[in-house]
């Protein structure tokens, strides 16, 4: 029950922030969409007729998945940075529900919003490019959630570092570009790259939506369990850094 209250609480706060800083939100949306259009039409014009239709479809889905990945990965550490700046980080630590629960709820609310936002972008992208993908939305959301859990775990590990060092944007920059490269790897059938975070789920989603591939049920279970391992590992690292921060009196420092 407390999780539901926490998530609704965060969604309400997010809604108020969007309303109060609507210019930032609208301009951010326009920029994100502008980049996508530049990529899409740029690729189309450069490659001309030699470009396969599935490549454009992959670009549409890939761009959305990349956006969600970035948001999910950065969420915990950017939240910690943001709360430190505002001076409210210690206040969150005073909840008897525990900081991990508070951040999990914050991240979940943020991911819910990101998914909704990106589904709208996806729809707009299909509308403007005229390429209508056959998307099973419940499957799309299910796949994103089970894949994104791993990034939340990595985000928690990064968040732990952020509690002590506050700004960790350089790590994000490496990851932002790194994940694009990782998407080129083959993750199915099972190989060493299948254990990477997020990538197997994202590639499965592209495979299903763009190429119409089917996967066995155990594969989805595997993605989910791998993601959970990353989440638990991330939470564990967060706890270690959190304890270190309490020892060093770093919670209130920004």
């Amino acid at each position: 029950m407390s999780y539901i209250i926490l998530i609704i609480n965060e969604l309400k706060k997010l809604g108020k922030e969007i309303k109060r800083y609507y210019f930032e939100f609208i301009s951010g949306t326009i920029i994100m969409f502008g980049i996508f259009l530049a990529l899409f039409f740029g690729l189309k014009n450069f490659a001309g007729d030699s470009l396969e239709a599935t490549s454009l479809d992959s670009l549409i889905v890939g761009y959305i998945l990349w956006g969600i990945a970035m948001q999910s990965f950065q969420s915990v550490s950017s939240m910690i940075w943001d709360e430190s700046q505002k001076g409210t980080l210690e206040k969150l630590y005073l909840s008897h529900l525990g900081i991990e629960k508070i951040f999990l709820a914050k991240v979940f609310a943020s991911i819910l919003f990101t998914i909704f936002f990106n589904v709208v972008i996806l729809f707009l992208a299909m509308l403007i490019t005229g390429r209508w993908l056959n998307i099973n939305y419940p499957y799309f959301i299910f796949m994103i959630i089970i894949s994104v859990i791993s990034l939340v775990g990595i985000g928690f590990a990064g968040g732990g570092i952020a509690i002590i060092h506050k700004k960790v944007t350089s790590i994000f920059s490496i990851f932002s570009f790194g994940i694009i490269g990782l998407m080129a790897l083959t993750t199915y059938p099972m190989n060493v790259f299948s254990f990477l975070p997020y990538v197997p789920g994202a590639k499965t989603l592209i495979g299903s939506i763009v190429h119409g591939q089917t996967y066995p049920l155990w594969w989805y279970g595997f993605i989910f369990v791998t993601s959970l391992v990353y989440l638990v590992g991330g939470l564990y690292l967060f706890k270690i850094y959190d304890r270190k921060a309490r020892k060093m009196n770093k919670l209130g420092v920004y």
């Binding site: 407390s2 926490l6 706060k13 800083y21």
Partner: peptide, 18 residues
């Protein structure tokens, strides 16, 4: 939170306490 009102702040921190 400076961008929220007193009422919104109270509601938010109550939410943090479940």
């Amino acid at each position: 939170y400076w961008h929220l009102s007193p009422e919104e702040n109270i509601n938010y921190f109550a939410g943090i306490m479940g």
